[in-house]
Design a binder for these strands. Structure first.
Length: 322
DNA sequence: CCAAGTCAAGTCAGA
DNA sequence: TCTGACTTGACTTGG
C-alpha cells in the first residue's frame, strides 16, 4: 500500500489576477530615468507576487491541496548583473513572514524549481556565479518564510558540452564548493535530452542528493537498455536522509509530434501503470503535476484516480493505492 | 483592444 | 562562429 499526494506548479487556473510571476524587463527598467523609482517599482511587483503566492496557498487550503511549487520568478531582475547592490529581501521580509506564518498554521510541502539557467556542470565563472546567486536567492526566500531549506529546490544537472563524463565530474567539483546549506537544499531531476536517470543517479549517490524522478523525461530520453524499474530501489535510497517523502514529477506528452511538451492534463492510465509498478515500495510518495492546466489538472487526476477500485481518496489531495 | 513580438539568464543543433 | 529552437507566462508594442 502506498499513499500518493498530488501537487501542482506555481499558479492557479481558478484565481483571477493572481500571478506570482509578474515581472519587469530589464529593457523597461532602463527606460525609467529615476533609478530609485525603478527599484521601488521592482519591489512593488515583488510584494505583489508574494501576496499572490499567499492567495495561492489559501486557495490550496480551501481545496485540500498540501503540496505546491512556488514560482521562481517572484523577484524580477533579482540576480541581474546591473543591480548588484539591490537588497531585494529587506522590503519583502514582512511579506515572507506572513507566508511563513500561514504555512506554520497550515502545513504544506512547498518547494522551488528554478529553470534551466541554473547550471552546475560549467567550468566558467560567468555561468557558475549567477547559478550560485540564484540558488542563494531561493535559500534566502525559504529562510525568510521560516521553511527548512533542506531538499526544497529541484534543479537539472546542466549542459554536457560534448563530454558528459567530464560534465558530471565538473558538477561534483562545483557542488563541493557550495555552502553546506545550499548543498542540502538541492534535489536533482533526470532530464529529457541529456542526463538520463542513470547519469543523475550517479551524481545523487555520490553526493547524497535526493533524486526527483521525472517519468515523462525518462520516457522521452533514456539510454539503450536502460530500464527505470531496475533503478527504482536506488532512487528510493537517495531519499533515506530526507524527512520528506520521495518526490516525483508527473506529466503527459502533449502528442506524438511534440512528445516532450506538457499536455493540458495527466493521462490517468499512464499514471496508474506507473503506480502499479511501484506501489508498496514506499509508504508515501509526492507527485508534482506538471500540466498546462495546473491545479485543474490536479483536480481532474484525483477524480480520475477515484474511479479505480484499488484507489481510496484521502484528504489533502491524497489517495491510497492498495 | 487585441494580437504578435519580445524578454536576463543557457545549451544545442545546424547552417 | 553564429543563429534559431527550445519553452514559458507575462510584458510590450504595433496595428
Amino acid at each position: 500500500m502506498t499513499v500518493v499526494r498530488l501537487g501542482y506548479v506555481a499558479m492557479s487556473m481558478n484565481l483571477q489576477n493572481c500571478s506570482p510571476s509578474q515581472t519587469m524587463t530589464f529593457a523597461k527598467f532602463k527606460t525609467i530615468k529615476d533609478r530609485e523609482a525603478a527599484i521601488q517599482k521592482l519591489e512593488r511587483i515583488s510584494v505583489s507576487n508574494l501576496e499572490n503566492c499567499l492567495r495561492l496557498l489559501k486557495h490550496n487550503k480551501g481545496n485540500g491541496v498540501t503540496f505546491f511549487r512556488f514560482s521562481s520568478k517572484l523577484i524580477p531582475l533579482a540576480n541581474h548583473d546591473e543591480l548588484p547592490d539591490w537588497n531585494y529581501i529587506k522590503p519583502l521580509k514582512w511579506k515572507l513572514k506572513e507566508i511563513g506564518d500561514f504555512l506554520e498554521k497550515n502545513p504544506m510541502r512547498v518547494d522551488f524549481h528554478p529553470d534551466h539557467f541554473v547550471v552546475l556542470t560549467s567550468s566558467k565563472p560567468e555561468i557558475i556565479n549567477p547559478t550560485v546567486k540564484t540558488l542563494r536567492m531561493h535559500y534566502t526566500l525559504l529562510k525568510g518564510m521560516g521553511v527548512n531549506p533542506e531538499y526544497r529546490c529541484v534543479i537539472h544537472v546542466g549542459g554536457a558540452y560534448d563530454d558528459k563524463e567530464q560534465a558530471l565530474e565538473q558538477f561534483i567539483h562545483n557542488f563541493g564548493l557550495l555552502p553546506r546549506g545550499i548543498q542540502q537544499m538541492i534535489m536533482l531531476e533526470n532530464d529529457d535530452t541529456t542526463f538520463s536517470l542513470h547519469n543523475t543517479l550517479y551524481l545523487c549517490e555520490k553526493l547524497s542528493i535526493p533524486l526527483v524522478f521525472d517519468y515523462h523525461h525518462y520516457l522521452a530520453h533514456h539510454e539503450e537498455g536502460e530500464n527505470w524499474e531496475e533503478h527504482w530501489e536506488r532512487v528510493i535510497e537517495t531519499w533515506r536522509h530526507s524527512n520528506l517523502p520521495l518526490k516525483m514529477h508527473i506529466s503527459s506528452p502533449r502528442d506524438e509530434a511534440e512528445y516532450r511538451a506538457h499536455a493540458d492534463y495527466i493521462d490517468p492510465s499512464m499514471f496508474m501503470d506507473f503506480l502499479t509498478k511501484i506501489k508498496g515500495s514506499v509508504d508515501h510518495i509526492d507527485c508534482m503535476i506538471e500540466a498546462k492546466q495546473k491545479d485543474n489538472a490536479l483536480f481532474k487526476l484525483l477524480k480520475d484516480m477515484a474511479q479505480y477500485p484499488e484507489v481510496e481518496v484521502l484528504s489533502g489531495a491524497r489517495f491510497k493505492i492498495k
